[in-house]
């Protein structure tokens, strides 16, 4: 396996002066292409902050971050936006779908933003992804009419739309019942095996973490195990 991304001496501090909070304290991490890794650690350990940095949604205070050979620290907002669209998918705890759009429109969104329109090819892939997620009969449903588990599966399909190399999932099953959580994890595992997509899943759930090939434990802003 080759390195998909690598971060070194990553520091992230929120605020300044007396109110400054140091969340990451020299974190080092290397993620191989095709890995399915769980990110574990107590609340406040820096898991979510690490995910937002790896997702290029925020920049570290200091340190290096290289992904697919690109220096993500030096890149500007426009470059990061385009990079995110092409190479990174997100699954959030609260699905975060666009409420006024159908399941298919949500899934197609990342492609439509890049192409400037919903292309027939994108719609075909969107239908295919939703079918694989077991939502063939919910394709044109408004997302408001879907259950929590269904919404999360739509979110997984959306994350995969542009065939990203990396999918970052922040507590993807944290808001689901056990059956729905297992269904979502089965799908993630299947895509990881079939398409070689790298997954980094932040979770508090040991059973969910056990489904991953690797467990990365974060504590006090560094990788502890």
């Amino acid at each position: 396996m080759s390195a998909l991304l690598e971060v070194r001496d990553l520091f992230k501090t929120y605020g300044t002066g007396d109110t400054a909070t140091r969340v990451l304290r020299g974190l080092n991490l290397r993620l191989e292409a095709g890995e399915m890794a769980a990110l574990l650690g107590p609340s406040g350990s820096g898991k979510s902050t690490l995910l937002t940095i790896l997702g290029t949604l925020t920049k570290p205070t200091s340190g290096s971050f290289v992904m697919l050979g690109n220096d993500m620290i030096a890149a500007g907002d426009k470059e990061l936006t385009d990079f995110r669209n092409a190479h990174i998918g997100f699954v959030f705890q609260f699905h975060n779908l666009l409420p006024d759009f159908t399941a298919l429109e949500n899934v197609v969104f990342p492609s439509a933003v890049r192409e400037g329109r919903e292309t027939p090819a994108a719609r075909a892939r969107g239908r295919d992804l939703l079918t694989r997620m077991g939502l063939a009969d919910r394709i044109n449903f408004p997302t408001a009419n879907l259950s929590g588990g269904q919404k999360q599966r739509v979110a997984v399909a959306r994350a995969l739309m542009n065939s990203p190399e990396l999918v970052l999932a922040d507590e993807p099953t944290g808001n689901l019942d056990r059956a729905s959580a297992m269904q979502v994890m089965d799908l993630i595992g299947q895509i990881n095996r079939d398409e070689g997509t790298t997954f980094l899943i932040s979770t508090h759930d040991d059973k969910i973490a056990g489904l991953c090939q690797r467990q990365i434990v974060v504590g006090d802003g560094v990788v502890t195990g």
Partner: peptide, 11 residues
Amino acid sequence: EIGIMRAMGAG
């Protein structure tokens, strides 16, 4: 929603 769009690659 704007945050989601931006996260999905909307400039």
